[in-house]
Amino acid sequence: MKQPFFLLLFLLAGFLSSFPSQADEITVYSHRHYPSDDVLFAKFTEQSGIRVRVVKAGADELIERLRAEGDNTRADVLLTADAGRLHIAKSADLLLPLESETLTERIPEAYRDPDNTWFGFTLRARVIIYAKDRVNPNELSTYEDLADRKWRGRLLARSSSHIYNQSLLASLIAAHGEAEALNWARAVRRNLIRAPQGNDRDQMRSVARGLADVAIVNTYYLGLMHNSPDPQDRELAGRLAVFYPNQDGRGIHVNISGGGVVKASRHPEQAQKFLEFLVSEEAQKTFPQTTSEFPVLAGVELSDLQKSWGDFKADTLNLGKLGELNVTAVRLFNLSGWE
């Protein structure tokens, strides 16, 4: 009784999930959901004649799905908004190593996999923002300094369940080892003026309104806030400034938005072309304007807002390392009491 029934189930599921695959079309599994991406992909189609089919979902779900699909997948490219997930995909043997001079030349070493399975195409800087009217930037120096008692009751950050905070802690583990990273998380949690709540933008709003003086956030959220439909949001954003920490040391913590070609891809060449397009000058120059992300390609012009924040030096630690340390970071957060 059971066997034919399951067969029926399989048939049903297959019916729901199968779709035709064509040579001049690639399927992109993307964690990014920006309308500007669609415009960019259309430009790629125009240039290469390769159509792009985008499937959007959370990175964890996409990776789970790639795992389940195995060799039967229709996916050609996986795009995520952080390196940790790309590392997980690589460890699960889902990504294809590429030999592409374009990619290796244009992308700095830290932002691509040493084994060439994944490549970053934009940077996201996790920095300190502060209220212009209450904080003298000279008070600020490093991430490590945020653990100092002088910040008690003046600091804001989002929940530890978010991948951006996990990556930041992973970078501290890489720099100082687990014990010190744990102490740092504990101390920073103590300095937080309230238990973490809301997203990066909420932290910034609260700083602008005067609840706290500084917050740990990603820069592009500030960009989004400057372009908000809410006039109050735009006004609040004007009260904030960006501080790039650790400029005398290893540099700021950056993460990437990046991608790789799926190992079971049926169109690896077209998929590689797609990744190469994303680091082309033409594509790179759009990111600062549309998503307030930093380009990986050197020499691309930044947006006025980004320029106003000044230059920065970024940590050169290979981002694959952050992926390896991610679970450790989650455990340390749990131990530290940072919710």
């Binding site: 189930l9 399989f10 048939l11 049903l12 599921a13 297959g14 729901l16 999930s17 199968s18 779900e61 789970e64 799905r65 389940a68 699909e69 195995g70 039967n72």
Partner: peptide, 12 residues
């Protein structure tokens, strides 16, 4: 080697 799967589908 069935060309189908259950996880992550509408069916699931």
């Amino acid at each position: 080697q069935l060309p189908i799967y259950l996880s992550g589908t509408l069916f699931a």
